[in-house]
């Protein structure tokens, strides 16, 4: 135990031995208040100066940059969302326009169809009318021709009879007989005045 004590005492006193041996001699562990003082002064001065002129500007710049980047990213995100929304809207609009066009085409088709049907009908009607008219005219012509023919026949008959009767018969009585005969034939009334 004593040995240990003396040894530790010797060790503790070692720097003192060293400094006794010569004023210049400094050992590895010798205390130096001046150096400690200088270290403190230099460190604290460095701390204050660097905080003000180096670390704060760097931190501020980095934070500003981070903020700018964050903002840029957010703006981009917002723009993208907006663009996506716009795209959706445009797509919907295009879809709508397409539907409308389709509808227009369909409408036009039905309208055309209707017009065609209408025209066809009209044409048919016109045709019918023309046919009818032609038939009526034909009938009228025929009637007229029949009437005329009849009149001619009457005239011819009369003139023939006249020739006969002129010779021997009472003309008026004969004419009456013939006319009565003619009246008995069923036919549309001949228009004697149209002659």
């Amino acid at each position: 135990m004593r040995k240990i004590l003396t040894l530790s005492l010797f060790l503790l006193a070692a720097p003192a031995y060293a400094s006794e041996a010569g004023a210049e001699k400094t050992s590895l562990m010798s205390p130096n208040t001046g150096l400690m003082f200088w270290t403190l002064v230099i460190f604290i001065a460095l701390w204050i100066i660097l905080t003000k002129y180096a670390f704060k500007p760097i931190t501020a710049a980095v934070e500003a940059r981070e903020a700018a980047l964050r903002e840029a990213i957010e703006t981009a995100k917002r723009d993208r969302d907006e663009a996506a929304l716009l795209l959706l809207q445009h797509r919907a609009k295009i879809e709508e326009a397409r539907g409308e066009a389709q509808r227009f085409i369909a409408e036009a088709r039905t309208a055309g169809e209707k017009v065609r049907a209408h025209m066809l009908e009209e044409t048919k009607a016109e045709q019918q009318e023309m046919l009818d008219r032609a038939r009526r005219e034909i009938e009228a012509e025929r009637d007229r021709a029949i009437a005329q023919l009849r009149r001619e026949a009457v005239e011819l008959a009369i003139s023939g009879a006249e020739k006969v009767i002129e010779r021997n018969l009472d003309t008026d009585a004969n004419r009456k007989i013939v006319e009565t005969f003619l009246a008995s034939i069923p036919a549309s009334k001949p228009d004697r005045a149209s002659r």
Partner: peptide, 18 residues
């Protein structure tokens, strides 16, 4: 330390923060 760090901080010009 002063030269290197303040020099480094100087390069962070305020004109182009991003």
């Amino acid at each position: 330390c002063l030269i290197v760090l303040i020099g480094g901080a100087r390069a962070h010009g305020g004109s182009k923060p991003d």
